[in-house]
Amino acid sequence: MFEPFKVEALSTFASDIDGVIILVTILVGFWFFVAQAALIGFCIHFRHRDGHKAQYIAGDKKSETRWITIPLALIVTCDVFIAMADGPVWKKVKEHRPEPDRIVRVIAQQWAWTFVHPGQDEKLGTPDDITTTGDLHVEVNKVYHFELSSRDVLHSFSVPVFRLKQDAIPGRTIVGWFEATGTGTYDIQCTEICGIGHGLMPARIQIETPEQHAAWVSERSQTLLASTTSLRAGQE
């Protein structure tokens, strides 16, 4: 039943994030059901019946308050576990960046995504850079850094299959990273409201095998080369 709603985990940190989510589910889920069971149980057991008078409990004796303090101590313990599990994951996703194999530039604007990929020289900022709109091409099992910027308002670069999300802020370049672990084509979302076209700026990420990616780069380089040559020919 939930199969269509499963989001694949295709980055090296996706399963870590899923791990935090599962841990939280178990720990808070337990307390959720305990509290609901107490609520419903009390409601049924202590419903009004003729001849039964309610008890007088102020809740100021130790024997009474321990029903609150002991669960609280356990909840704090659960909080500590969650924080301990969460810290390293956050560090891995956002703080510690492994050395990049490749760098791409991601530029957000009202209302489109522009991606700048390195060309065959594997370097950004050279004439053979491949610029696309709405299509990000990456190679599987390679560490990528992205340099995220915005031309106008806030946007947010979100790739659900990577469990990756980062706001883009005009005037700043924010660097993040990912490493894909599987291939396929998936959605890229803008997850920060950016004006009337917020829902109309979709993009796709194409995660490719090394062969596919090399083929794509060389094909794009050919067209790039062809267009520059014809441009030059036209000028002459």
Partner: peptide, 10 residues
């Protein structure tokens, strides 16, 4: 939990 929030935010 910041790690989980990366996925759930917005």
């Amino acid at each position: 939990a910041a790690g989980a929030d990366v996925y759930f935010h917005d």
